[in-house]
Design a protein around this nucleic acid. Structure first.
Length: 239
DNA sequence: GCAAAGATTTGCT
DNA sequence: GCAAATCTTTGCC
């Protein structure tokens, strides 16, 4: 078992928390209460891309509407999962940051798979073959054919979670995990410190993706953080 | 009560 | 490069 991720690192200003979260591990244990039949292996990946959403004034953040039923978790204590559905089909996983009553979170945009590659492939196949609404229903979907993604070619291992919707699909994250404490050592979905503090990797910052509606300065602030050189960052596969 | 848009991904032209 | 898929949430009447 790895070391649970310290909540203190997430209770700080979100841009600082982002640099701590980059490189951390996301761990997903089997969860028989809600998993599809056949899910038995642990999934582990290294977070290589996150985006910061900070405060009610951030016109790109869901918190811009003030506290609502959807975003209530963002207003809660740090270290919990904020999960929502975008475009009616994809789930997105966020890690809440900053002290309670200050709505902020980090969107997990990409993960480098470490363990449980086959389980991730199977989960992505399931996510594609059923509507998002059924994701929360009882675990009755049939086990998919191992190794097939539904496309002509199997997805390369390093691209399995290379995007926010793909992270949720590969790790079987849906709204049933909204509010879950990701710093708890016994949570089925949780954060862990990387075994070796990998300070060798450089971090890059860029503007956030897919928030053109927010206008300036929000479309330009460099609040997207990526591990330089990772083959698993979102978007077209890097050469 | 209804219309519109969205922190995306995929496949086809 | 563009559009479709899909459904919840927000905003306005």
């Amino acid at each position: 078992m790895g070391r649970p991720f310290p909540r203190d690192l997430l209770a700080r200003p979100t841009l600082d928390a982002a640099r701590s979260l980059l490189g951390a591990w996301l761990v997903r244990d089997p969860d028989p209460r809600r998993d599809a039949p056949g899910v038995s292996g642990r999934r582990v990946g290294r977070i290589v891309e996150v985006e910061a959403y900070i405060g009610e004034g951030d016109r790109a953040s869901h918190a811009r509407f003030g506290r609502t039923r959807r975003n209530a978790v963002m207003f809660g204590p740090p270290g919990h999962a904020y999960v929502y559905l975008v475009y009616g089909m994809h789930h997105c996983l966020n890690v809440v940051t900053e002290p309670a009553d200050r709505p902020a979170a980090l969107l997990v945009r990409a993960i480098e798979p470490i363990l449980g590659i086959d389980e991730m492939r199977a989960a992505r196949a399931r996510a594609r073959s059923r509507p998002a609404r059924a994701a929360q229903a009882a675990p009755t979907s049939p086990a998919p054919v191992a190794g097939l993604s539904g496309s002509r070619h199997p997805v390369a291992a390093h691209r399995l979670a290379a995007g926010p919707g793909l992270v949720a699909a590969a790790f079987d994250v849906d709204r049933s995990y909204n509010g879950l404490d990701l710093c708890a050592a016994d949570a089925p979905l949780r954060l862990e410190l990387a075994p070796d503090d990998d300070a060798s990797t450089d971090m890059l910052t860029t503007p956030r993706i897919g928030i053109g509606y927010a206008g300036e300065p929000w479309v330009s602030v460099p609040w997207r953080f990526v591990m330089a050189g990772s083959p698993s960052i979102s978007g077209p596969a890097p050469r």
